[in-house]
Measured scan of single mutants.
Amino acid sequence: KITVTFNGEEKARRYYKKMQKHNLKVEIRVENNQWVVHVE
């Protein structure tokens, strides 16, 4: 499981979509004013 933190929504969403293309289970959320993407 990987957790990647971004300081911008745009970058986070781009990464999220990229990971989805690989058929990975991805989850995006905001934690402590940071955009966090969890990849299983």
Rank of each mutant, 00 (worst) to 15 (best):
Q34W: 07
N32H: 08
E31G: 03
I28K: 00
K21T: 09
K25E: 05
N23T: 04
H22N: 10
E27F: 09
T3S: 09
V30M: 14
M19I: 05
E40C: 10
I28S: 00
E27C: 09
A12H: 03
Y15D: 02
E9R: 08
F6R: 00
N33A: 07
V4Y: 10
V26E: 00
K18P: 01
T3G: 03
K25Y: 10
K21A: 14
Y15F: 15
K17C: 07
T3W: 05
V39G: 01
K11G: 15
K11A: 15
K18F: 14
K18T: 09
N33P: 01
Q34D: 03
R29Y: 14
T3F: 07
R14W: 11
V4M: 11
R13L: 14
K21R: 10
G8D: 15
R13H: 08
I2Q: 07
F6S: 01
I2H: 12
A12N: 02
A12G: 02
N7R: 10
V37R: 00
N33R: 04
W35K: 00
V37Y: 00
K21H: 10
Q20T: 07
N33C: 03
E9L: 11
E10M: 09
E27I: 10
N33M: 07
R29N: 06
V26H: 00
T3Q: 06
G8Y: 12
E9K: 09
V36G: 01
K21S: 13
Q34C: 06
K18S: 10
N23I: 05
H22K: 13
L24N: 06
T3R: 08
V4Q: 05
E10L: 10
N23F: 13
L24Q: 06
V37K: 00
L24Y: 14
K18V: 09
H22E: 10
K11S: 15
I28M: 08
Y15V: 02
E40A: 08
W35E: 00
N32E: 07
N7G: 08
K25I: 10
T5P: 04
W35D: 00
V36R: 02
Y15P: 01
Q34I: 13
K18H: 13
E9N: 03
Q34R: 12
H38G: 04
E40I: 13
I28Q: 00
H22V: 06
V26P: 03
Q20W: 04
N33Y: 06
E40K: 06
V39Q: 02
I2K: 08
N32T: 03
N7E: 14
E10Y: 09
Q20V: 11
W35L: 02
R29A: 12
H38F: 11
H38D: 12
R13T: 07
V36A: 03
I28C: 04
M19Q: 03
W35V: 03
F6P: 01
K18D: 09
V4A: 06
K25S: 10
